[in-house]
Write a protein that binds this DNA or RNA. Sequence first.
RNA 1: CGGGGUAUAGCGCAGUUUGGCUAGCGCGCUUGAUUCGGGUUCAAGAGGUCGCAGGUUCAAAUCCUGUUACCCCGACCA
Length: 478
Amino acid sequence: MGKKEKMVQQITSMQEDFAQWYTDVVKKAELIDYSSVRGCMIIRPYGYAIWENIQKELDTRFKATGHENVYMPMFIPEGLLQKEKDHVEGFAPEVAWVTHGGEEKLTERLCVRPTSETLFCEHYSNVIQSYRDLPKLYNQWCSVVRWEKTTRPFLRTLEFLWQEGHTAHATQEEAQEETLRMLNVYAEFCENVLAIPVIKGQKTEKEKFAGAMATYTIESLMHDGKALQSGTSHNFGDGFARAFDIQYTDQNNELQYVYQTSWGVTTRLIGAVIMVHGDDSGLVLPPALAPLQLVIIPIAQHKPGVLDKAYEIKEQLSKSVRVKVDDTDKMPGWKFSEHEMKGVPLRLEIGPKDIEKQQVVLVRRDTGEKLFVPMEELEEKVPQLMEQIQKDLLEKARQHRDKHTYIAHTLEEFEKTVVEKPGFIKAMWCGDVDCENEIKERTGATARCIPFEQEDLGSTCVCCGKPSKHMVYWGKAY
RNA sequence: CGGGGUAUAGCGCAGUUUGGCUAGCGCGCUUGAUUCGGGUUCAAGAGGUCGCAGGUUCAAAUCCUGUUACCCCGACCA
């Protein structure tokens, strides 16, 4: 009994206190540690390995769609930042400033990049001359700094890792095509690698990026019913081009402004994985993302032949999965819990009894299901299970999301749903920002997106009763 | 940034109200045995300027002032 209790007490349960559960998981799964700087976190090896897998998967997709990686400076002169009015207004409240170099005060202070639009624009204005220079399809992996007031590991930190794509095109149509192409890349990545289903759509005027003509987003739903903006893709039109004078000469020898896009995802995605798949035993990682896909736990490892067999199986499986043997001298039960906390998708137990029967025990992290598998079937069975787990996680998340997506026809219904059933709320909207503000004030929910897949839920706005324009996904967000 | 809470060993906590001997406990950690199919058992040991900075006092983990970090709820945001 005492033992059972100890196990349960490892982390706070999701139901009891979701926020505390989240903090417990990021710490106990050894994803992060807090640092001595407020709001900044240390990403530990296991957490960073997850980020590296995200990078690898995304970078492959970026390259496949013709993008090149570059690196911009981390400092932006104040004057440069201020060239685009909406942009600077959006970011000014949360930039960090460098005012001194050594002991000497700088004549112009430098902003630590909160995002790099202005740097890319300045560079583009120098390197783009002719229609032959277009399109420019650049991406950058880096960290940015935003001086936030409240912070949470992965979800909001002062410095965070991300990628930002910045492209320049000859026409508005091309820019729009690129904006949606990258949104689709994100959506496909989230579903197939992270096993997180997303709603694709457009942000409202109120919610769009500072300086953008249009912002598109993928929105996902966390286990507690809160929404998480998981990636954005912006079409800038020629707004930045006009502010930064990025012009090219077209085929008719006429000067034209370029059309630009930018798009990004961040380490926040790791937070999404935790909050979508995790459970009371800790993290649950989809196999495509997991740094370690299969952990082999020898039982009675001091007995002759056990460790040898474990290593033999490891060798055999390492062709198809990321696998390791946990041969530390801890008790098996301890190892089980530890790897469950870290979300390793599949566990293989091998002991004297198994060796005798020429079989092993496989245990799925997501379902807890135990499978007795003959050794000669392992090479086939393990990759199969990986695929199955990947698929099941996505399906489970999709079902959770659908189950927690509600429809509201009136504001009263809307308010009631927000209070009683956290999740997405689908409701019609007239397009007026006043209604958007009133909904936020009365319910705390914001417009997450105007989804591409529209549904007809009636002809009147949920707020004012005037003719409706769009069906909108609403929700409380992280 | 507003309201609430917390800070004592790696982790979880007691002690603080009412200042008083050398600051305790459980887990973990180290060493040696023992055990191994869900957090073994036993023995010996290491580890703390009580978040930080001031102040009051013969004496401060304990009282006072300031400050920082973390957690929760709001406002802002990837």
